[in-house]
Design a protein around this nucleic acid. Structure first.
Lengths: 331, 331
DNA sequence: GTCATCTGCTAAATCGATTTAGCAGATGAA
DNA sequence: TTCATCTGCTAAATCGATTTAGCAGATGAC
């Protein structure tokens, strides 16, 4: 910039005014403005955004916290977030905390230090311990300063269980989510409540829980094997998510059960692979990309407004049942 | 920081020296140092990294360019990159260019403006048009200033074709990658060369090409359907990647062909879903996480060294054949 | 001719740190 | 006593921009 000023015989102040089209530039004649633009183009001038942020206290950067970078959930959400941020000219840091409490606590501060103007927490119990705007996707705690983007879990449980019920299934095995997943408890309560409504008995012996922080179908596979060891009777299985449903299907096949002829399997999420699994997965679709987009929109709106701006405490999105091949009438 | 200085009756300079453990702090007595640390803790002092970067010209930030955030390839690589950067205290921006030429050209500059100290380009033809260190994963162009991390495609093609050949397959259908994928051409040439070696004839009528920038199995599904329309004879199919292999398997099943009994299918990548597909996928495993880690290591090494540091032009990693259920002896 | 206003631009402060040169006072040696 | 050296610290420049207050000179009104 100094070089530009020198070359043009102007001050850096003038250049700054023009480049930023600030109101103060009104009094600068058109010819001078053109000279400046021409020179900027010629020397490929690109302002140093560090310096600019330092002064303006705007960085056009936000931070996104995810449990891990993996297939499935986080990727889809990130893709939505990215979409909207890109349109608005924001960049973002990604940090993954691998469910480590200390990192979940520390990352918001680190992001703030790096001038992030806001935080999106994905599937993370975020304590809001940092005074920048935040949006939590599937964060079910109500925390001051944080907007929660959540799915209507009751509707989801309804769609899934009613679907199975109508197909004649009443003995339904369940795979519960890991304790650290912020959706686990909410969804579980929704399932219990809907089951009661439909008169479906939730048998503890038909229930297993994911127990490892690996994002691989292996976990669902393992717990389903364990479930099957006692050789319990059930005709349908409702998995915590598509990933674990895939693991479960493998376990069922390995032990001689056909899906869906012997056991219907229903997942949750509708990740990209679900439609192309064999059998293709019947599942409760979460609008994951949409949740990412809404999260980004909400956050940017808060950032743009004054600090006191009212913000929604919760935004609820609706799931849809996607019926494919992995569920069938009980025979 | 000013507040700290005021509170301690010291100058900001002193505090800076101590906090950063710079050599100049040697002459500051231990008691003063302790006072400073105590106060910093008490007031939870966190230096403004923008200001620090501006002065030091170090940001401990790099940029990662990917085609899109999706399941499969990019996620796995990103996960490796993240792993290493995390250990070294670096943060990273993710930008996805969706194969848009203008963005591929522009993003490196934008990242540089945001003080990124280096760039990792994933599956992107990176022109190196920016004077910061860069590492390209599966970038096959040799560009000044860029280290290429590549797979030994010849070995991969060998492993796959020889596997099929030994199972008795000689009429092999092929799904070629999208033109924009930087691996497409290299892998294709490797396949042609290995096929010639093994005496396998590559029949143009048995070859289709992925043609959409969607990262979904849908593309593989569609082109396989097209391939099957002419009802050609083949007993094995070698897909460009696992994603398209999954789509292909679906297309084969829909048209009454069993996998692997009628057609063996082999993929490439070994993404997380591959082992849990049904049938589980035989595939050429790329050490994707490893590639991410190596990329990050290489980049940070270059950043740490003086600008003139020698850097490797190319690092070759070896694939492995993972035999699962989707391939079988020709019957 | 005089004063007010406008035009076109700049000087200087500022953001929050790092870093270099060097100052004042204490200590030690001759 | 005097000078050199060391100890403990600070003043001030700097990074690269933005932003505010205001300065000269031209123009216009009366």
């Amino acid at each position: 910039m100094k070089a530009l000023a020198q070359h043009l015989g102007l001050s850096t102040a003038t250049i700054s005014l023009v480049i930023n089209r600030s109101p103060g530039a009104k009094s600068i004649p058109h010819v001078t403005q053109e000279r400046i633009w021409a020179a900027a183009r010629k020397f490929k001038y690109r302002p140093n955004l560090m310096a600019r942020s330092l002064r303006q206290k705007r960085s056009f950067t936000i931070g996104v916290m995810v449990p891990e970078i993996s297939e499935g959930y986080s990727s889809m959400v990130l893709s939505g977030v990215e979409d909207h941020l890109f349109q608005e000219g924001y960049f973002y840091f990604v940090v993954s905390h691998r469910h480590r409490e200390d990192l979940i606590e520390e990352y918001p501060h680190l992001l703030r230090q790096r001038a992030a103007e806001g935080i999106i927490a994905v599937d993370t119990v975020y304590a809001g311990n940092c005074d920048i705007p935040a949006v939590s996707i599937s964060g079910h705690r109500h925390v001051k300063g944080v907007t929660n983007i959540v799915l209507n879990h009751n509707l989801g449980a309804h769609l899934a269980l009613e679907h199975l019920y109508r197909l004649g299934h009443t003995r339904i095995a369940l795979i519960k989510g890991q304790d650290f997943s912020s959706d686990t408890e909410t969804r579980w309560q929704a399932i219990l409540s809907v089951a009661r409504e439909l008169g479906i008995v939730i048998d503890e012996k038909l229930t297993v829980q994911l127990d490892s922080d690996s994002p691989s179908p292996e976990v669902g596979h393992r717990v389903t094997r364990k479930l099957l060891e006692a050789n319990p009777q059930f005709t349908a299985l409702f998995a915590f998510n598509d990933i674990s449903a895939m693991g479960a299907i493998k376990a069922l096949r390995e032990t001689g059960r056909r899906v869906p002829e012997d056991v219907s399997v229903i997942g949750w999420d509708d990740i990209q692979g679900a439609a192309f699994h064999n059998p293709s997965l019947t599942t409760v679709r979460q609008p994951l990309r949409q949740m990412g987009i809404v999260a980004a929109e909400t956050l940017l709106k808060r950032i743009a407004g004054p600090a006191s701006t009212e913000y929604p405490k919760e935004i609820v999105l609706e799931p849809k049942l996607v019926v494919r091949e992995s569920t069938a009438r009980k025979n």
